[in-house]
Every structure is written in C-alpha cells, then in structure tokens.
C-alpha cells in the first residue's frame, strides 16, 4: 500500500491529478469510496477484501468531471469497469491515471490499455461459491418456480435505482426508465413495473456487464441482481463463443457478421 500512497501523493503534489478516488475505512467496519484532493489526507487510503465498490462508476459522473483529472485506486473489478467505459467511448483511457492494486494492496502500474487488458486476462473472474450455487439452484427450477422466485425477489424492490447508480456501465444521461415519450417502462414500484425495470436493465447489460456484483451489493433489499447478469454472461459466451477478453472491449449484441449462425440476421 505504501507505493500506492506514494504514487497518489506524487500525482496530487505535482498537480498531475486533482483528485484521487480510492477506499477508506467506513463508519461501520466496511470500506467506502473516498475522494482525496489534498495529499495530506493520503494516509486514509486502504485496500482489502472489504473494498468491493466498483470505483469506475465515478468516472462518468458530472460532479467528478468538474474537479479535474482523476487517479483511481483500481481493483480488478474497477479495472474492468474502466476498460469497458473506455471501449464504449465514455472517456479516453489516457485521461485517467490508474493506481492498480492487487489483492494484497500492491501497486500495479500500466503503461497502456493493452497492458490493463492483459492483466485482466491473466486474472479470470472468480465467482463466489454462493453466487454459483444460487445460479445453479435457479437454473434447476422449473419455469414456474423461476417465475415465482423472481416475482418474490422483485416484489421487495422500492425503485431506488441503487443498482443503476452503483453500476459503472449504467451511465446513460437519460435512462430508459426516465424517458416518458413514450413511457417504455412503468416507473411505478409494482409487480409489472419492477419486473420491466429489472429485465430491461439486465438486457441492457447483457454482454456489457463486468460481473463486479456492485448492483446486488448496493441493493438495500438484497435482490440478487448479479445472478441475472451472471446468467446472461454465461448465455452470451455459450451462444456466441466469446471470451471474456473479447467482451471487455466489444459489445457482441451490436456486432454484425455475415457468418453469424443465426439465420434471422441474413
């Protein structure tokens, strides 16, 4: 961590960046995002297993853009978010300074986007046993059981949009649920509205989600939204035979190839 802090300090002191986004101790034993603009506060920075927030989410926020150039303390998930956002043209990769951290909080420096992608590729996504077992449990349900399961889960939704807010890939200025001409999705927190919202959101992230799980962790009523995304990620790689590396910088649902096996596209 010392090298991470030192580099962060240098970047701030030399005014190469105006803010370092990282993690600090929260008030309740959890870690939380922190914005450091003065290097005298650099010792607040931490990194450990509790640092699960995907900090890439902040890189597209107007409030952050206003501060100036940003350095990010980037975990593997944050790195994936950054690469995805850069590939979707949300910012230029070189406009961001990355303080990569591995599991032990050791500094990783990257000279280029390709190096980040290589690094991500060497560290394939590891789903937790809980995630996998829930996914398999849901897969083994009958259609009716699955329907009931998700209806029950979605019934708790209060439409706070914490899932959207915590997701680095939900960066649309005008989210489909906020558009009312036409009103594509009902904004009401009822069975239909909630179902529409979560299905649409999952579909919008299919092939784009970096499976960081930030949505599910942000959900105040514990809806396992990450399982939806996980399932769709599996479907995408199964149906399109696509590697995670490819997914990071491409959006398979938007790519047309005359050799696609589906006939409907021809």
């Amino acid at each position: 961590m010392d090298r991470v802090k030192q580099k962060a300090r240098d970047l701030l002191d030399s005014n190469k960046v105006q803010v370092v986004i990282g993690y600090e101790e929260g008030t309740d034993g959890t870690a939380r995002p922190v914005f450091i603009m003065d290097s005298k506060n650099i010792d607040k920075l931490i990194f450990n297993d509790r640092c699960y927030h995907n900090l890439a989410v902040y890189l597209t926020k107007v409030e952050v853009e206003k501060i100036g150039r940003v350095a990010v303390e980037a975990s593997l998930n944050t790195l994936k978010g950054i690469v995805k956002l850069a590939s979707e043209g949300q910012f230029v990769f070189e406009d961001i300074d990355i303080l990569g951290v591995n599991r032990n909080g050791e500094l990783y420096e990257f000279a280029s986007l390709d190096e980040v992608i290589d690094y991500i590729d060497q560290h394939p996504v590891e789903y937790s046993p809980e995630e996998i077992s829930l996914l398999r449990k849901i897969e083994s349900m009958t259609r009716e059981e699955r329907w009931e399961y998700w209806q029950e889960e979605f019934s708790r939704c209060i439409r706070c949009y914490a899932c959207r807010a915590a997701c680095p890939n939900c960066y649309c200025d005008a989210c489909i649920v906020d558009i009312n001409q036409p009103q594509w999705i009902s904004p009401t927190p009822d069975a239909l509205g909630n179902l529409e919202w979560h299905i649409i959101r999952a579909m919008h992230l299919a092939g784009r989600c970096v499976n960081c799980g930030a949505c599910a962790k942000a959900c105040p009523v514990d809806i396992p939204l990450n399982i939806l995304n996980l399932k769709l990620a599996e479907e995408i790689s199964k149906n399109f035979g696509i590697s995670e590396e490819f997914l990071l910088t491409n959006y398979p649902l938007a790519i047309y190839d005359p050799n696609d096996k589906e006939n409907f596209i021809k």
Partner: peptide, 28 residues
C-alpha cells in the same frame, strides 16, 4: 460537495426514511 462526492445519486436513503414524503404523480 465534500460530504456528498461519494454519493451515487440513488434514492435508497429517501425510500427507507420514515419521514421523506416527496412524491411524483403518474398516470397508469
């Protein structure tokens, strides 16, 4: 700004709050 930079702009705080009462009017 310092207090809220971390904020993700979701509505969780208001929706779990017992006294937040702001509302929208919509036609279904």
């Amino acid at each position: 700004m310092q207090q809220s930079l971390r904020c993700l702009s979701c509505g969780t705080c208001a929706y779990v709050c017992p006294t937040c009462s702001c509302f929208d009017i919509q036609d279904i």
